[in-house]
Design a protein around this nucleic acid. Structure first.
Lengths: 192, 192
DNA sequence: GCGTTTTCTTAAACTACATTATTTTTTTAC
DNA sequence: GTAAAAAAATAATGTAGTTTAAGAAAACGC
């Protein structure tokens, strides 16, 4: 079960033989996180990139006044980390929390660096993962610059119906960059 | 000269032998773009990823009302394309224009796909390029969500002083997601 | 070098969204 | 199941940034 999902994720982009599969699985560390627990806390060094086997995670930035901005959600079959912190092994800007009970596979920085050398196909795999992440973030920037909050809300609902079902409205609001009160107003409009 | 800059850019992350270098250079196509000329037009298929050897490019989205949002600038030593369009060979969302006379090296999609197979080290190279792009875009999202326009303006000036010197204020405004009039107000404040 | 076009500035009126406060609804903890 | 806590809704007031318009400054084309 554990193997299946992450291997299926990998083999969307590269194929692995038995040895490679065994080696890759051997460097993953599985860990359970109950709802509301913390996977990464700002200021800590982010040692792992994380695959969500089940559950839901949320990455958010907390500004000096305490205001939270949700940077991304990750559900089953997604990879998530504070990439800046992970790559450069610097203190994390982001917090990552479980918003449902979650089962996470951790891949350590050193193990990933080794993996790139031992099985260079993983360069390809993560090249594609990074490429997709870049494309996603750039599209989000375009939308944040050119659309109203209301338009962004309905696009979010369409694009991530699964996630929308699982999370609080205030978390959607903090992803859209608006207050929960204003999101409430947007939703009230709909029924006019 | 041409070789030097792009090779220097590549060898920051991977090393190439003579044959590899020659092959890589052979698939690049150099082209001059005078100021105000168009490298990519929305709706076209984006066939190349582009290295700026000299000059300055701007990628922007034009919404249905004609309002422009600048997505990125690229100066000497940067890679730029409409990545979503390039990767999936779909019609471009973005326009890319030269805002100075520019000398560009084009790398075609098919040639890059071949390159990944012939010299897999380039998977690593572009993995790192994509990773950095992702990190940059994510930081921009964090800043757009958590900072005021004024704060974003001064961060832009600090982070990209080179670019700031070369471009029009209205282009900075459209990168920050504000009107040129409001940027003028911000700048006027400073002198109080 | 000069007329034309584009960019920048200033200012008044406007709007999308924030803030604060109160009430209602939903979720959580035991 | 129930009390307490958190989330959502509603509404009044406030503000960061927009719009429109007009004049001044800078850049451009020939």
């Amino acid at each position: 079960m554990m193997q299946n999902l992450v291997l299926k994720n990998i083999t969307k982009h590269i194929s692995l033989d038995e040895n490679e599969t065994a080696y890759f699985l051997s460097i993953l560390k599985e860990k359970k996180y109950p709802k509301r627990s913390i996977i990464l806390k700002e200021g800590e060094i982010c040692k792992t990139i994380n695959f969500v086997q089940s559950g839901t995670l949320r990455a958010f930035y907390r500004d000096p006044t305490g205001k939270e901005s949700t940077i991304m959600f990750a559900i089953s079959d997604w990879w998530i980390t504070d990439m800046a912190c992970f790559v450069n092994q610097q203190p994390a800007m982001l917090n990552i929390e479980a918003i449902e009970d979650s089962l996470i596979l951790h891949l350590q920085k050193e193990d990933l660096d080794d993996l790139y050398l031992k099985i260079p196909k993983f360069e390809r795999f993560f090249r594609i993962i990074m490429q997709n992440a870049y494309i996603r973030e750039q599209l989000r920037i375009i939308q944040n610059l050119s659309l109203t909050a209301e338009q962004r809300y309905y696009i979010f609902l369409e694009k991530y119906p699964q996630i929308a079902k699982q999370i609080k409205q205030k978390q959607i609001a903090s992803y859209l960059g608006i207050t929960p009160e204003f999101l409430s107003m947007i939703r009230a409009q709909k029924n006019k």
